[in-house]
Lab assay of single mutants.
Amino acid sequence: QVALSRTQVCGILREELFQGDAFHQSDTHIFIIMGASGDLAKKKIYPTIWWLFRDGLLPENTFIVGYARSRLTVADIRKQSEPFFKATPEEKLKLEDFFARNSYVAGQYDDAASYQRLNSHMNALHLGSQANRLFYLALPPTVYEAVTKNIHESCMSQIGWNRIIVEKPFGRDLQSSDRLSNHISSLFREDQIYRIDHYLGKEMVQNLMVLRFANRIFGPIWNRDNIACVILTFKEPFGTEGRGGYFDEFGIIRDVMQNHLLQMLCLVAMEKPASTNSDDVRDEKVKVLKCISEVQANNVVLGQYVGNPDGEGEATKGYLDDPTVPRGSTTATFAAVVLYVENERWDGVPFILRCGKALNERKAEVRLQFHDVAGDIFHQQCKRNELVIRVQPNEAVYTKMMTKKPGMFFNPEESELDLTYGNRYKNVKLPDAYERLILDVFCGSQMHFVRSDELREAWRIFTPLLHQIELEKPKPIPYIYGSRGPTEADELMKRVGFQYEGTYKWVNPHKL
């Protein structure tokens, strides 16, 4: 086992960053958080920038500027975001240094004079007029057009580079997404736009490419001749908990499936790229999406959770019991969808996408189930092999396979070949997804960000279904809070070829 401390991990990262040409360590950078008073800024962006600063992973002359409508001070920003920093008493001095680099400007999102004030403020910072500028839009999409237009007109660096990070949702359907994309691309070049999907920053999602293309053993079996089906799962054990009003506007397909799960599907299904260059990788992902037809209604199961009468606390409440959810809402909190990649490698292999709230566990994984062994000599005792990439929690890679049961006879039983990170790298604290992705933006690497043509294809696949749901308002199937979801989803999976045995229990190697 390799035991690495946080300091050692960050030392390795620093070495990698400083050796590259793309990370300008000594240049002045300004990180501007648009929507600095909001939840995302408070819980994710400010803490992430602090962790990067604490670990010495930001360029040395980096300033952080918050911008929002609320009249706040840096002290206010500190008060609301610091509880999420997880700072230790030993880091007190470092924390003071961090907040000394912070400033805040209040202004409207659609007022040109406010942006001119913001620009004057940035120019007044040390070497601010020639600094590289990175704008993070932690804002609702309704203000994107006004904000990007004003940034472009008043706040661009004339000497350094300018980059803009856009948070999902990128529209509600193909038409609104196209409108937003066309607007942003009329102001910024594609190499300046970073559409963030934080799932692409997760260690195991990034590991998929290495697993596939750096190991000879997987190449020959990664196709329709050997793989019976692919299941991509995202499960949350909690409901909307008072935030249903926002969720109800989008629903589970827009929230998770059309982005996170579809991105994971691309990494499983794509061909080997010409290189690890950002556009070479994204070219292959677009090719996969172009091979997927629009979702067919007979390959869809929609569910909505109801309270568990035997549960406790939140578990007793259904989705419609959330006071922020519109009365009688038919918005799905669970969806199972089957897609097919219609190309030579994957023809006929079902890709089953499942996601839901208020389920029995927290889990995100990719599961490849292989065909049955031909010419069975073990009297149907063999179960199908599976390769599982567990994204969260407890990152893991393992192969479910058959071995001989101890004893006199040739009785096979299920076991696993474990390729888990935790076994080799004991207690290594890896940077989280937002840390990686923000560092990628500083480096100018777009590999783990969504390109406009990729986004367009993703919406093309799901828009007809979303429009049909909005028009017909089908009643989702009720499922109990804390269950596996509607049984109809299991029946759909069985119908397209997935075999669920229920006889195997994964042993978490992190707890051995």
Rank of each mutant, 00 (worst) to 15 (best):
P478G: 11
V268M: 10
S278A: 15
D347Y: 07
D310N: 14
V341N: 02
K400R: 10
I352Y: 06
D376S: 09
P406I: 06
D376W: 07
K494F: 12
T316N: 13
L262N: 07
I469H: 10
F442E: 03
P476T: 11
S415V: 11
L437G: 00
P350V: 02
N423T: 14
I377M: 10
K475C: 12
N427V: 06
V388L: 05
N299D: 11
Q296A: 15
D322A: 03
A458P: 05
D322M: 06
N299E: 14
R384N: 07
L267H: 06
T399E: 07
S278Y: 10
T487W: 13
L368G: 00
R384H: 05
T399M: 11
F334W: 05
E472N: 11
V295A: 15
D432M: 07
E413D: 15
H260I: 02
R362K: 09
F351S: 02
M264C: 06
N427S: 09
R390W: 03
P412L: 09
E344G: 09
G313R: 10
P323G: 11
K317H: 12
D255G: 00
F498W: 12
H467I: 08
L368E: 01
Y340W: 10
C382Y: 14
T324W: 07
A332I: 02
P486T: 00
D321Y: 05
V341L: 14
Y340Q: 13
P464M: 08
T330L: 09
R390A: 12
F442L: 07
K290S: 12
H371Q: 11
K404P: 05
E488P: 10
Y479G: 03
Q446W: 02
N308Q: 13
L267P: 04
K494E: 15
I352V: 13
L302N: 06
R484T: 01
P464Y: 07
H371G: 09
E314W: 10
C291R: 13
K383F: 09
A297M: 12
Q263V: 01
E344C: 08
R367M: 00
T399H: 11
G303P: 01
A269G: 13
Y421W: 08
Q263A: 00
S415K: 00
L471M: 12
S278I: 00
Y504G: 06
Y305Q: 01
C266Y: 03
N423F: 10
G356R: 02
Q296E: 12
N427E: 13
L262G: 07
K405E: 13
P309G: 12
G485Y: 02
F442R: 05
V256I: 13
K363S: 05
K494D: 12
V288N: 07
G303F: 04
I352L: 08
T331Y: 00
R484D: 01
D490L: 12
Q392W: 01
V373W: 06
V428K: 15
P474L: 12
F442M: 07
A374V: 10
M408S: 06
S415D: 04
Q263Y: 03
H467S: 11
P326F: 06
V349E: 00
A336P: 02
D310Y: 14
C266T: 14
G422V: 15
T333M: 00
S275W: 03
L339R: 00
Q381F: 09
L359F: 04
R495S: 12
E414I: 13
C443G: 12
V301S: 10
Y319D: 00
V295E: 06
E472K: 12
D372N: 11
R460D: 05
V391C: 03
L302P: 03
G444K: 10
K426R: 11
I389N: 03
V338M: 11
T420Q: 09
E294C: 14
G356M: 02
K400H: 00
D372P: 12
Y504F: 05
P326R: 06
K317E: 12
M264A: 07
E491D: 14
G482H: 07
A396E: 00
V337N: 12
E414Y: 09
D453F: 00
P464W: 08
E365Y: 05
G328F: 12
I292M: 12
V373S: 07
E294P: 11
E491K: 14
D376F: 07
T276V: 12
E470I: 07
N423P: 14
K429C: 12
K285E: 00
A374Q: 13
L353D: 04
V338D: 06
E413P: 02
P309D: 12
L320F: 09
F409S: 15
Y340L: 10
N423K: 15
L262S: 08
R282T: 04
F442C: 11
A364M: 13
E271M: 05
F334V: 02
T503V: 11
K357T: 00
D490Y: 08
K426F: 08
T399A: 13
R436A: 09
L419F: 07
E435D: 08
V288G: 05
V288L: 10
M401D: 03
R282G: 00
Q304H: 05
K475W: 10
Q304A: 06
V338Q: 10
M493H: 09
V300G: 09
L339D: 00
N411Y: 09
A315R: 10
K272I: 07
W346D: 01
E470M: 08
I377D: 08
S415C: 14
V428H: 15
R354C: 03
E457Q: 12
G313D: 14
G485M: 01
L320G: 10
Y500D: 03
E395W: 03
A297W: 14
I480K: 14
V337R: 00
S483Y: 05
M401R: 05
N423Y: 10
L261E: 01
D321N: 10
K405F: 14
Q263D: 01
N411G: 15
Q380L: 07
V441C: 14
G303L: 02
G482L: 04
Q258G: 06
K383I: 13
E435V: 08
K473A: 13
Q446M: 09
Y434K: 04
M401H: 11
S278D: 06
G307W: 01
R456H: 08
E395I: 05
E488L: 10
I480T: 15
A335W: 04
Q296W: 10
F370D: 03
F498C: 12
Q304D: 00
V306G: 10
Y425K: 05
P412A: 10
P478D: 11
K272L: 06
H371T: 11
H448D: 08
A274E: 11
E361Y: 04
Y479P: 01
D280A: 14
L455Q: 03
G444E: 07
G318T: 06
P486V: 07
Q263L: 02
Q258T: 07
V338S: 11
M257F: 09
P309F: 09
R254F: 02
M493R: 07
